[in-house]
Nucleic acid binder design. Structure first.
Length: 815
DNA sequence: AGCACGCCGACT
DNA sequence: GTCGGCGTGCTC
């Protein structure tokens, strides 16, 4: 009787793959274990066992698995079910979900290793120069990777050389798959057993009387052991000034012996319970959440900025972990985890674990395994969207903070999932509750509240008498007419900044565009430098004196004269954070201003450094992009300035107004503190615009009503569901035709509206032309059947020879 | 997706 | 004459 498994491979292929296993393996293997399997000509992948069966494939011979990587499953049945849902809903393969769900430390890929054959002699084998170089390198290193061979020969195509060496019997190839995860081990020492008795010990000290250093080391060891009553780590001795050589010779003399204990890489120290109690309003909100959970699985907490939502989350989480449940806390931005970990571990001690993509491989594997075991140390998980894929087995609650943030939706590699929506599905599988929190809920969530699908709780009062900020509108048209502008600052704005600083408070300025200016223009011929690979103008960076493309990274030195007409009269157009920072240096030369955007927050701690120095008041004025709007708390900010509200309002996106509202309210929320009313200054050409008015009046309901009305009229979410199909190819005509073909077929096959084919605002990126189509699914129309039909149409597109090279991406619920 | 295979233009 | 460009087909 043959035995088989179905394995999921981390690839964008629609099917699972069948592999043959032995009877013993069949008995041992379970769903959710990893297996190393050969795939294609000479590659080994980490497959995941999806099922076991005994039906031989009919059209091909199943390969045998290479070996088994786990002793017990590392992926739970619920996860597999959830992955399946993600793959179906977001229209990608389960392999893609698997690939992004598993930490890369658990997802190994093979590497081809070249080793020399022992009995080969170079003499008389007539190797050419390249072959000899490889042979020689192998005498020194005894194993090479393909990449290394390529470096040695200084060219890309090395396979012919390798093949010739194989045929000459000089080398052989192996596929190596190495476990990347290594538990961190701490080195300890202890006295060999025979010295544990008193007399031997005195003897020992006698023996060492002439080796002063070694004697000292042994004495010190005793001290440590007596005081700590714990195993003695080698590091403790070296810290005390005992050298590694001394320890080594003691080990060599068999006086000490060394041993290792695995240690957790991540440890949060925390005094358990820095007890606090909720304010009256917070308690009310807390109560309405718990009541709401009796009827609804999902509840939205609509709490204005600085109303103390986090305290409510903490109280809620406490209840769940007391009953032994796991809690997942999702944040929109990795950079926010640091602040939150401090707050939560002060309360829950080392029950808090973190998980996000900036964590090292090993750290992520560790958290994964802890969650899988249901370890005490990972009862509360804080993470960005990928933490959703951890192997929970007893999940009780998911908190999604800043629920409206668009970064919860994964944009680029598939699966293009929305963490909020996927979390709600996951919670259902676990019978867990979901709490969404935001000061400016997404229209989707608030809509679900109104229709009774979600529960609702609100917190409409700032914590501890913080008065909501005063919002002042500045009419730019008027200011320019009256010549009251200095650069991009109106006199009102400059005065307010000066006043705030004079009071010893800090200022935040918001400009949603990085760089110095979005483009430069020749004042003689009107030429605007463009990216040669993308259909965008190049952003000017004054500091680096460069022009840069935000889409492909292309950059050139900033021209001194126009490339077209050689005029030297070049002017910058528009403005970004860098320019504002420059202007500040002139306006407030003795104040310390700093800039926070993607360009200054590179690196693992770039962001935290800026935040910390702002908190420590080393920075007086912080200029930043939308990064500033994401749930940061500062307690000395006297005013917030929005330099140009208009560029947010006029984006070609049906969500532009909602976003502009959210962004402005969020940024405004950074102003003010206890007993001190903050000020928010908004510069705009449209002071009468509805969204601006809604921001000043803090009228979420008004914004919601107006936007929802528009969405209804123009057939957009939350009424209609959207699926965007994007086509890319370097041949302009080819994409254009393929998009038209696709449009026609979709229209004839689907009974729903299809928009397009549309040339997006940026119609070419990295030399690929882009077209997009939008399928709109009306309320009440089945999602699954429509998606199935779309996939079928795309398959038939793939069957058209001239179009199959066109790259296609599908984005369900684009955000 | 990756990767091998296969066919065609630009140079050591 | 090879190197490396890309189009094509396949992966249990």
């Amino acid at each position: 009787m043959p035995y088989f498994i179905e394995a999921i491979l981390p690839l964008a292929l629609p099917n699972t793959f069948t592999y043959a296993v032995t009877e013993a393996e069949y008995g041992f293997l379970q769903q959710g274990m990893r297996v190393a399997v050969p795939f294609g000509k000479n590659k080994i992948y980490t497959g995941l066992v999806a099922s076991l069966h005994q039906t031989p494939p009919r059209l091909y011979e199943a390969k045998e698995i290479h070996h088994i990587l786990d002793e017990k499953p590392i992926v739970t049945p619920i996860q597999l079910q959830h992955w399946k849902w993600v793959a179906d809903y977001y229209m990608c393969t389960i392999g893609e979900v698997y690939k992004s769900a598993l930490p890369s430390g658990l997802l190994l890929e093979s590497e081809t290793i070249i080793t020399p054959k022992k009995d080969f002699v170079a003499e008389g084998a007539d190797l050419n120069d390249e072959e000899y170089l490889v042979y020689e390198a192998l005498q020194v290193q005894s194993a090479l990777k393909i990449q290394e061979v390529s470096n040695i020969l200084n060219k890309k195509t090395v396979l012919p050389v390798i093949n010739r060496l194989i045929s000459k019997n000089a080398i052989s190839l192996q596929e190596e798959i190495s476990e990347k995860y290594k538990p961190k081990a701490i080195r300890y020492i202890r006295l060999q057993e025979q010295f544990l008795q008193q007399e031997q010990l005195s003897q020992l000290l006698e023996v060492l009387s002439r080796a002063k250093k070694q004697r000292e080391a042994v004495m010190h060891y005793f001290q440590l052991q007596a005081s700590d009553k714990k195993p003695v780590a080698v590091k403790k001795l070296t810290d005390a000034g005992i050298t590694a050589t001394v320890i080594k010779s003691l080990i060599d003399k068999e006086i000490f012996e060394e041993y290792y204990i695995e240690e957790d890489r991540i440890q949060f120290e925390g005094s358990n319970n820095a007890g606090f109690s909720l304010s009256e309003k917070q308690q009310l909100a807390f109560n309405s959440i718990t009541t709401s959970f009796e009827q609804h699985n999902v509840t939205l907490l609509h709490g204005i900025t600085s109303s103390g939502k986090t305290e409510i989350y903490i109280k809620l989480i406490e209840g769940y972990i007391q009953s032994g449940k796991q809690v997942l806390y999702l944040l929109p931005e990795i950079a926010l985890t640091a602040q939150l970990v401090i707050r939560l571990s002060a309360y829950f001690g080392n029950k808090v674990a973190v998980y996000h993509s900036k964590y090292s491989n090993n750290e992520r594997v560790e958290s994964w395994l802890q969650v899988l075991e249901g370890s005490e140390k990972a009862q509360v998980i804080i993470g960005a969207r990928s933490a959703l894929f951890l192997p929970f087995n007893n999940l009780g609650l998911i908190v999604i903070d800043e629920e409206h943030e668009q970064s919860f939706k994964q944009q680029d590699p598939a699966p293009r999932y929305h963490a909020r929506d996927a979390a709600i599905v996951l919670a259902n599988y676990h019978n867990a509750k979901v709490l969404l929190g935001s000061a400016t809920p997404s229209l989707e969530s608030y809509f679900n509240v109104q229709s009774g699908k979600y529960g609702y709780a609100e917190l409409k009062e700032r914590y501890g008498n913080v008065i909501p900020p005063e919002i002042i509108l500045i009419d730019l048209k008027d200011k320019y007419k009256r010549k009251q502008m200095t650069g991009h600052f109106s006199d009102t704005m400059t005065d307010a900044v000066a006043e705030t600083l004079a009071l010893g408070k800090q200022v935040i300025l918001f400009q949603n565009r990085r760089g110095f200016s979005p483009y430069i223009e020749c004042m003689t011929c009107g030429h605007v430098p463009q990216c040669p690979q993308c259909d965008v103008s190049l952003t000017y960076y004054k500091y680096k004196n460069a022009l840069r493309c935000h889409y492909c990274g292309y950059h050139i030195a900033s021209p001194t004269q126009c490339h077209k007409c050689h005029s030297t009269d070049i002017s910058t157009k528009g403005f970004g954070t860098e320019q504002i920072e420059q202007e500040l240096k002139v306006l407030f030369p003795e104040k310390n201003s700093w800039r926070m955007d993607q360009d200054t927050t590179r690196g693992r701690h770039g962001y935290e450094k800026i935040i910390d120095s702002f908190k420590n008041r080393e920075i007086d004025i912080l200029v930043g992009t939308q990064m500033l709007a994401k749930g940061l708390h500062f307690d000395n900010v006297g005013m917030v300035g929005i330099l140009n509200a208009d560029n947010m309002l006029y984006q070609p996106d049906f969500r532009a107004f909602e976003r502009a509202y959210q962004m402005m309210v969020q940024v405004a929320g950074r102003a003010g503190r206890k007993n001190d009313r903050g000020r928010v200054l908004v510069q705009t050409y449209n002071p009468l615009h509805n969204v601006i008015r809604q921001v000043t009046e803090n009228d979420y309901e008004g914004m919601f009503a107006e936007q929802v009305y528009e969405r209804h009229n123009y057939k957009y979410p939350p009424y209609y569901r959207l699926i965007r199909i994007t086509l890319r190819h370097k041949d302009y005509e080819k994409v254009k035709n393929a998009a038209l073909w696709l449009y026609n077929v979709l229209c004839s096959q689907l009974q729903v509206p299809v928009l397009g084919p549309e040339e997006p605002a940026i119609s070419r990126i990295r030399n690929e032309y882009i077209r997009s189509l939008m399928v709109k699914i009306p309320p009440g129309t089945g999602l699954q059947p429509t998606k199935k039909a779309i996939l079928k149409v795309l398959q038939s597109l793939d069957a058209v020879a001239q179009y199959k090279a066109v790259k296609i991406t599908i984005n369900a619920d684009p955000y």
